[in-house]
Amino acid sequence: MNAYMTSLYAISLREALRFVHQRERFVAALVRPLVWLLVFAAGFRAALGISIIAPYQTYITYETYIVPGLCGMILLFNGMQSSLSLVYDREMGSMKLLLTSPLPRWWLLFCKLVGSTLISILQAYAFLAIAAAFGVSAPVAGYLAVFPAFLIVGLMLGALGLVLSSFVKQLENFAGVMNFVIFPMFFLSSALYPLWKMAESSELLYAICAFNPFTHGIELIRFALYGQFNGEALLWTLLADGVFVAGAVWGYDPARGMVGRKR
């Protein structure tokens, strides 16, 4: 057990030190959601009125609605970026050294996920603090209740990034794969628009958004931020967690996965 905890601490510390040495990552992670909150939301506010929907008890501004979705954006982009570092480590050879550890491969990947997810949560809380400074806040208890939701969603998105990184042979190809996944996943969700508005526009779009695991992750965050429990969102997010983690373990298994076939 000591060896497991030591590896978790060491890998998480490595992720933290990498983040500290790349301070521009922190700024970049906040710029994207702040542009949406302070610029795009001002233009969309008049066109996209939000009715009374759960978990809100009254009419809300568009800025209030999109804050949970923008937190999800931070988790999504950081999950993909941390997986980009895995591709880099694999090209440099450090990934091979890590995976030759006597500890189970699934545990090493889990440690990587935990380290990157904790950094994502730190960035999400920094964004919530800035949003509150601009007048978009949630109940105080919600800031504590949302932590488990951040953790579950961050692990899901980080695991998805690991799955993608196991299929990418070269570092320069990963950016294209990221864009192919990130933007459809973000825009075809409830991050920026309620699902009932999607249903008014197109039943097909609504079905895609409802199937998107990122949608359920956003709703889990949204309800938790307002002190409410969304069992359906939790169930689907945990299911996606299990599928993506299993895919990551398979992908990084040299006997079966894509990593093994590339060497």
Rank of each mutant, 00 (worst) to 15 (best):
residue 64 T to S: 00
residue 48 L to P: 03
residue 88 Y to T: 07
residue 104 P to S: 13
residue 74 I to P: 02
residue 104 P to I: 10
residue 107 W to K: 07
residue 81 Q to F: 07
residue 86 L to F: 11
residue 50 I to H: 09
residue 93 G to L: 06
residue 86 L to I: 13
residue 90 R to M: 10
residue 91 E to Q: 13
residue 64 T to R: 04
residue 66 I to V: 15
residue 101 S to L: 10
residue 66 I to W: 00
residue 77 F to T: 05
residue 104 P to E: 12
residue 84 L to H: 09
residue 106 W to K: 05
residue 85 S to R: 10
residue 88 Y to W: 09
residue 57 Q to A: 05
residue 66 I to H: 01
residue 66 I to S: 01
residue 76 L to Q: 12
residue 85 S to L: 06
residue 96 K to I: 04
residue 96 K to D: 14
residue 78 N to C: 00
residue 50 I to V: 15
residue 69 G to Y: 08
residue 83 S to R: 07
residue 53 I to S: 06
residue 68 P to R: 11
residue 100 T to D: 11
residue 96 K to H: 11
residue 100 T to V: 07
residue 54 A to D: 11
residue 76 L to S: 08
residue 51 S to T: 15
residue 67 V to N: 00
residue 85 S to E: 12
residue 62 Y to F: 03
residue 87 V to L: 09
residue 82 S to L: 11
residue 56 Y to Q: 04
residue 79 G to K: 14
residue 91 E to P: 00
residue 67 V to R: 03
residue 65 Y to L: 12
residue 77 F to M: 11
residue 76 L to R: 06
residue 68 P to H: 11
residue 82 S to H: 04
residue 104 P to L: 08
residue 103 L to I: 03
residue 79 G to Y: 14
residue 65 Y to C: 03
residue 51 S to C: 02
residue 94 S to W: 10
residue 62 Y to G: 01
residue 57 Q to H: 01
residue 102 P to F: 04
residue 88 Y to S: 10
residue 65 Y to R: 04
residue 64 T to Q: 11
residue 76 L to E: 06
residue 58 T to M: 06
residue 51 S to I: 00
residue 72 G to W: 04
residue 92 M to H: 08
residue 73 M to V: 15
residue 74 I to T: 12
residue 89 D to K: 02
residue 95 M to H: 10
residue 51 S to N: 15
residue 68 P to C: 06
residue 64 T to L: 08
residue 93 G to T: 09
residue 87 V to M: 06
residue 95 M to P: 00
residue 92 M to Y: 06
residue 79 G to Q: 12
residue 89 D to N: 00
residue 71 C to Q: 09
residue 74 I to K: 09
residue 60 I to S: 03
residue 99 L to G: 03
residue 105 R to C: 09
residue 79 G to V: 13
residue 68 P to S: 09
residue 53 I to K: 10
residue 107 W to I: 09
residue 95 M to R: 00
residue 76 L to F: 13
residue 60 I to K: 11
residue 71 C to G: 04
residue 69 G to H: 12
residue 80 M to F: 14
residue 96 K to G: 13
residue 50 I to G: 15
residue 89 D to H: 05
residue 62 Y to S: 05
residue 73 M to D: 02
residue 60 I to V: 13
residue 88 Y to E: 04
residue 97 L to A: 08
residue 104 P to G: 14
residue 100 T to A: 15
residue 91 E to H: 12
residue 97 L to I: 03
residue 85 S to W: 05
residue 81 Q to M: 08
residue 94 S to H: 05
residue 82 S to C: 02
residue 83 S to L: 08
residue 59 Y to L: 12
residue 73 M to S: 06
residue 58 T to V: 09
residue 91 E to R: 12
residue 95 M to D: 00
residue 88 Y to H: 05
residue 87 V to F: 05
residue 57 Q to N: 03
residue 59 Y to R: 14
residue 98 L to D: 01
residue 91 E to G: 13
residue 100 T to M: 10
residue 56 Y to M: 02
residue 68 P to T: 07
residue 91 E to K: 12
residue 72 G to C: 14
residue 68 P to Y: 06
residue 101 S to I: 05
residue 50 I to T: 02
residue 67 V to L: 12
residue 86 L to R: 02
residue 63 E to Y: 03
residue 104 P to N: 07
residue 75 L to H: 11
residue 98 L to C: 00
residue 77 F to V: 13
residue 98 L to N: 05
residue 58 T to N: 13
residue 59 Y to I: 15
residue 86 L to V: 15
residue 98 L to S: 07
residue 48 L to F: 15
residue 63 E to K: 11
residue 65 Y to W: 08
residue 90 R to S: 11
residue 65 Y to P: 04
